[in-house]
């Protein structure tokens, strides 16, 4: 774990992986006085920190454990008819049913959000695919997609380079809800084929 100051009021903490970032971020929300706690793939940013020295000392005392925060479980009803489903199956050397089985068997966890409000990077699939060579100009909201070892669901219409395997009707992002992001970091996710 390495700490890097980012100016006088922010600290970037490097950790082993997304799971550790999520665990550190969950702890830091209560243990460190900061305006923003932003987990990412292998870092946690603490921004708007009142006392950088004190925050750094507190973080130094944090011990990474195998224990991961267990947030609430969200089931995502999904229709597996994405335009890249066959391509993913070919990449894995399996049939389409097996892609669906692997995707619905895994319990994923939202590690962090980025790219767009409410776009969660879901970790834990255990299989990976490359990004598209050239991104689509428009991906529909609710599209279930894969890139690298991540799974994601597009909350709003946007350009996108992830491989689309299915779609869901769930509303991923609604700023008028008390919890605007359905899949906030720490949320556990299971896909259910419809």
């Amino acid at each position: 774990m390495r700490q890097r100051p980012v100016g006088p009021h922010a600290l970037l903490v490097e950790v082993a992986d997304a799971g550790e970032a999520l665990a550190l971020a969950s702890w830091a929300r209560t243990a460190v006085e900061a305006v923003e706690v932003v987990p990412a793939a292998c870092t946690v940013l603490l921004d708007g920190v009142a006392d950088l020295t004190r925050a750094a000392d507190a973080v130094r005392g944090w011990q990474p454990t195998a224990e991961r925060p267990r947030g609430r479980l969200v089931e995502v009803p999904t229709i597996y008819d994405g335009p890249d489903l066959v391509r993913v199956a070919e990449h894995w050397g399996v049939d389409v049913d097996e892609v669906v089985r692997r995707h619905t068997d895994a319990e994923l966890v939202s590690s962090f959000c980025g790219f767009a409000p409410g776009f969660a990077y879901l970790d834990g699939l255990g299989w990976s695919v490359p990004r598209l060579d050239s991104p689509r100009p428009r991906v529909a909201p609710g599209s279930v997609a894969l890139a690298g070892s991540w799974c994601g669901i597009y909350p709003t219409a946007s350009p996108g380079g992830w491989q689309l395997i299915g779609r869901t009707d769930l509303v991923l992002w609604d700023p008028t809800r008390p919890d605007p992001a359905l899949l906030a970091p720490g949320t556990r996710v299971r896909f259910v084929a419809r």
Partner: peptide, 9 residues
């Protein structure tokens, strides 16, 4: 609206 960076805002 600080405080929502972790949700991508």
């Amino acid at each position: 609206r600080p405080g929502f960076a972790h949700l991508g805002v």
